[in-house]
Write a protein that binds this DNA or RNA. Sequence first.
DNA 1: CCACTATGTGCGATTATCGCACGATTCGCA
DNA 2: TGCGAATCGTGCGATAATCGCACATAGTGG
Lengths: 253, 253
Amino acid sequence: MSDRDFALTLAKGLEVLACFETGTPQLTLPEITRRSGLDRAVVRRLCLTLVRCGYLEEGEGGLRLAPRVLTLAGGFLRGLQVGRVVQPVLRHAAEELDMEVALATRDRLHAVYVDRAAPASARVTLGFGIGSALPLLHTAVGRMLLARSSAEVLDQALAARSPQPYTEATELDAAPLRAAVETAREQGYAFARDEFELGAAGVAVPLGGLGQVPFVLATTASVNAFDESGRLERVLDVLRRCALAIGRIGAPR
Amino acid sequence: MSDRDFALTLAKGLEVLACFETGTPQLTLPEITRRSGLDRAVVRRLCLTLVRCGYLEEGEGGLRLAPRVLTLAGGFLRGLQVGRVVQPVLRHAAEELDMEVALATRDRLHAVYVDRAAPASARVTLGFGIGSALPLLHTAVGRMLLARSSAEVLDQALAARSPQPYTEATELDAAPLRAAVETAREQGYAFARDEFELGAAGVAVPLGGLGQVPFVLATTASVNAFDESGRLERVLDVLRRCALAIGRIGAPR
DNA sequence: CCACTATGTGCGATTATCGCACGATTCGCA
DNA sequence: TGCGAATCGTGCGATAATCGCACATAGTGG
């Protein structure tokens, strides 16, 4: 049928795995069948394979991801030297700014946290950690990532944007969204507030990149944290020094 | 050939992915061929598939894991409510003890960090973060996990233990290792020092479990942090209250 | 009691996969 | 420059693995 160099069975198996990316703790066989659009018998056999390979495990009334996927992610993180070089820098910046600081990259049409640090004073968390996926269009991280991605990606993101707003401040029109990304590219940083979470604001700066994929450094805080005059400049300053300290990610090997 | 309910191609593809778990940043096609033992042409086609599905990306002279695996791990973590409930508890405990605190589980024959927090004062890090894999036999985390796993797992771990010691203090004989695990089971906590990293010591306590797989709470510090009399008791006390606060993991859904 | 949904699995046809083989290319080293 | 080793790309025929329909069972709720 399709390509000679494309293992269809593998792709379907990965498709099944991807059904769990949404964070649903448990999925039943019929649910996976619906989400993937594959044949019921095929899904069953693929799931059995995934269980035997240790990527899924069966709970009562459903399947869930196994710790195996963490080990895989660990391989990714170690390859990037996240534990040794990134984490200390983020921690330091988080304390200095008294804000949450994160390193993020892009997976398809989402921004994804690669590492993250919060200051000791932080009492409340938004619940985003390593592997959390955020929208590209309505967050500072996402817009900075888009500004450093190809035009095609921006088009795809706009085409795929959800018609439901996250908050009352969510921008839904294409033109202003394009403009926001363009602004981020021109001024070298992105800023967004209230569009994704009411009361939250974020700033993001670029950080070189690994191959095609851009990385960015971002910080999140409650909106009023940026009210103070000069605060934004200070945040940008710290983030940029932070970016220099981390350097070209994954480069030294 | 083999089972009717086992997708061989999918298993081989996962095998290829698993080659990257060791943390090697880049792998060339011939290297993957060697590690996996598969046919060269097969490896090539599987890798092409993995690239097209977004799990691998091609760098100069090699393949590496793509951010996609992070998104997958994010699904696992969200399913466990790690971001919202676990992380704040760990952070609090880390500050209270002024030590690194981690939640870990078992993947095959390794302990793997599910989440981790370090106190603000921490200037030096061992470089272990989410997804890091630690040996089961020579760490406190690992021994507590073994104490809560089946006897078969312990046997497998002993059979697979590396003949090279990590440090001069690494216990290599089977009998004392079995005894250490048994001790951990009896006294309800595990302690280890110097066996994995010279100068480092760790304590671990159980935390209920999700299905078959046990979870444990662990803390790490330099050996002399435990010299002070009564310190161990205090650490155990905090860790156990921490375990209660997290509760039966993944249970409330 | 029936309709609906979930589940397990046999089996024949299809076709995707395998893995050898041949050829091109690059690179290091003499 | 020229040679050998290693990497790489990819036809192609045979094989066997996969597909997906179909039948059968069980649990649930109206």
